[in-house]
Write a protein that binds this DNA or RNA. Structure first.
Lengths: 185, 185
DNA sequence: TATTGTTATACTCTATAACTATA
DNA sequence: TATAGTTATAGAGTATAACAATA
């Protein structure tokens, strides 16, 4: 039984070399992640209830629906955080459900040409309006037009900023097991 | 890149009762989720690498560190999306790692008083600066003070809006298994 | 009866590494 | 050699329902 130290703060007084966020940043940080987490949860619930698919699977369908033609697995994975095997898994699920099809690629024999099936497109069109309406309801109702543009502008900058530095899914860079346990049991 | 072209099927010509998002809303929606997804991924990677814990576990530690005293399991779960059993699982992991302790509750014999151990507090303080610095680097660097306040303001409204309607984790309401055949209907 | 929390169980998802087949 | 994709496998996480103890 260890007692809590009430003086343990999330934003401690700046110590030596401390790089803490100021209160405004801290609360913005937390409220952003909390709100988006809530949003994602609600959206995922609805997608599962109405379409029997996860948000990730919805994203994959959306990507295919938006594409001018077939995509390779790698193209489909781009921008999605997973490993290749994770995509293979999801593609397998979608294919098993009859929503996508994988065929030979015209240009590269190693690649696979992934397309939406008619059922996949139909499902996508069936669930999209509800998805969009929920997003509007949850996200945009409490926003003004000005908020909307500002939010879009901010997050675009943030995303572009993040995309410049970090490695993506296709990176073969191996992230070793961090090793040290948080606290040896 | 994840932007979905507004002229594609994502916003079909308004049919009867169609409630599609306009292009600004659509791109804002996608860029918000994409940016936060990237952010969460990076933060989680760092937490695992430096502390051997997940983002969720970090949240639980933060909640305990921030609390004036012990919390019950229910209080700890509040605001976290999981089921009770999910929390029991995570608490089990944290306890096994020696980061938290569960004892009897003074007021309610059914409840458990959850506290940070010294190791838990130490770990939290050890990884917090890096976490905060990364958050600052990824999220706040490309932002002006004005952006920051506006973002905080917007997301606070959005969160409060969402918190008024939907049920939370403790809701015993059962969400039935959705349609077995995604493509069917 | 309702609530707090745990257990048992089944399932989804993700990551790593080994593998193939092309380039 | 490098790349595209799959497989095998192991592990983390999540949800549901049944359960015990207390309110």
């Amino acid at each position: 039984m260890t007692e809590i130290r009430p003086d343990a703060q999330l934003s401690p007084a700046a110590g030596p070399g401390a790089q803490s966020l100021d209160p405004a940043q801290l609360s913005t940080y937390f409220v952003l992640l909390e709100a988006v987490s809530l949003l994602q949860y609600q959206l995922e619930q609805q997608l599962r209830a109405e379409g029997g698919i996860s948000y990730v699977q919805f994203e994959l369908l959306a990507r295919l629906a938006d594409a001018p033609g077939p995509l390779t697995m790698t193209q489909l994975a781009d921008g999605v955080v997973y490993s290749r095997s994770g995509l293979t898994y999801q593609a397998g699920q979608l294919e098993k459900a009859g929503l996508i099809a994988r065929g030979p690629d015209a240009d590269d024999d190693r690649a696979r040409a992934v397309t939406l099936t008619q059922d996949g497109l139909a499902l996508f069109h069936r669930i999209l309006p509800g998805h969009i309406q929920l997003a509007r309801q949850l996200l945009f109702d409490p926003m003004t037009r000005d908020d909307l543009h500002h939010l879009g502008d901010i997050m675009t900058r943030v995303r572009d900023h993040m995309r410049t530095q970090p490695p993506r899914s296709a990176s073969p860079r191996k992230r070793r097991r961090p090793g040290p346990n948080p606290a040896q049991d």
